[in-house]
Design a protein around this nucleic acid. Structure first.
Lengths: 220, 220
DNA sequence: GAAAATATTTAGATTTGTCTAAATTTAAAT
DNA sequence: ATTTAAATTTAGACAAATCTAAATATTTTC
């Protein structure tokens, strides 16, 4: 199936927003896509017909398996092109996003796969974001900041960014150490803080700064 | 100014057709663009408003200087991407046209120029067609494909694109060699073949493929 | 739990690029 | 020089993606 750039942008936006809260609102989409809520409603109806997402009016929206598959392929293209722009064409990492927004809509699957091979199957783009492989799988045992974690994904603390005593002090206080298993339950967009759950304990809040410096790994 | 892919395709088509006969008809465009004559008329009106072409109803169409500039930039992108696909990503030369049709509409001018530099400023694409430089100049007079020649201009064979024995065999048969002086008398749009005249001989026909791979020089 | 505030959807319009069918102009043929 | 044929344009319609303004739901607040 072939989708328009606009449709692809909607699917991608839903995917990204779903990482922050599992069902996505019309307004959030309108803001992310720089468009009007009414336009979002219109498009959601079309995407629902194409079975790319589940949508009940006033109830928000979720991707179907097919929608997720599509989103991941678009993200794969985006990140591979960014890698290409920075490492092959020597663009600065700040300039590549906009160009990749266009390139990600180029159709040919063979093109992406050849590009992937040419680049040496990179696992992370220039911003540190993981690049899905041909089958949509993220690099195994990925490290990413706690602040970047999708909700409810089980993860293990693998490293600490800021290792100053003040930071380690905070971690000790919260009983977080290498190997601690946790999941993000909620994200507060006001200040970027996250609420995490560790089995057998009460949920606790972690500031945006700390969350950026707690590196976690997860499988699949 | 930013133009839609559709507008760019029209401009490109006019440019190519103008090489065959200096004013271009509605029907020829409809055929080239695989669309209806009525749609062509509609679009020509819009492109005229944008001053990309000169159009008087029933009288056919011609590019303005600005239209020509745009066409050359699109062709530049197309051919650079084709070169990239064949030489960097190792596609076969038959498969690249379709993908380049999409890539040529990517906006960023910086992207094209970086790509050009990365590829080593190639002067001809994998089909032997000349690649305009950043300023729209074709590789210095000396190397233009026979297929790109305007009618009745005197030229001299300066190089051969495809140098395989099968090609050289054809050239020997037609008594065409480096230094042969010729002119194009007619172009057949059906198959892209050209009729050439060499002084003291009968006119002969050269296929589109061969014409693209016979590189000729002419002064100014 | 009703009123106020916010979020979402509908209704109707607009723009871009396309189409079909009919009308008109130009070119070709007798 | 008419008539016929071919090419081109107009008129009116349609789908995609968007918008504004108004109507309706939902959520929040008191």
């Amino acid at each position: 199936m072939k989708y328009s750039p606009s449709q692809e942008n909607y699917i991608k936006a839903v995917y990204h927003l779903q990482l922050e809260s599992s069902t996505v609102t019309t307004n959030a989409l309108a803001q992310a896509l720089d468009t009007r809520p009414a336009s979002v409603t219109d498009m959601l109806k079309k995407l629902k017909l194409q079975k790319l997402l589940l949508y009940e009016k006033y109830r928000g929206v979720k991707l179907t398996a097919e929608g997720r598959r599509l989103a991941v392929q678009i993200i794969r293209k985006h990140r591979l092109w960014e890698f290409f722009l920075v490492h092959t064409l020597r663009f600065g990492w700040e300039e590549v996003h906009e160009i990749a927004e266009e390139l990600e809509h180029i159709g040919s699957g063979k093109l992406v796969d050849r590009l992937d091979a040419f680049l040496g199957f990179p696992q992370h783009d220039p911003h540190g974001d993981p690049i899905p492989d041909r089958l949509g799988k993220l690099p195994a045992g990925t490290h990413s900041a706690l602040s970047e974690m999708p909700l409810h994904r089980h993860a293990v603390v693998r490293g600490i960014g800021d290792q100053r005593p003040v930071m380690l002090d905070l971690l000790r206080d919260q009983q977080i150490a290498l190997g601690t298993k946790l999941e993000v339950q909620k994200k507060f967009s006001v200040d970027g803080s996250v609420q995490i759950k560790i089995r057998g304990r009460q949920p606790v809040n972690i500031s945006a700064y700390a969350a950026k410096n707690i590196l976690v790994g997860y499988d699949k």
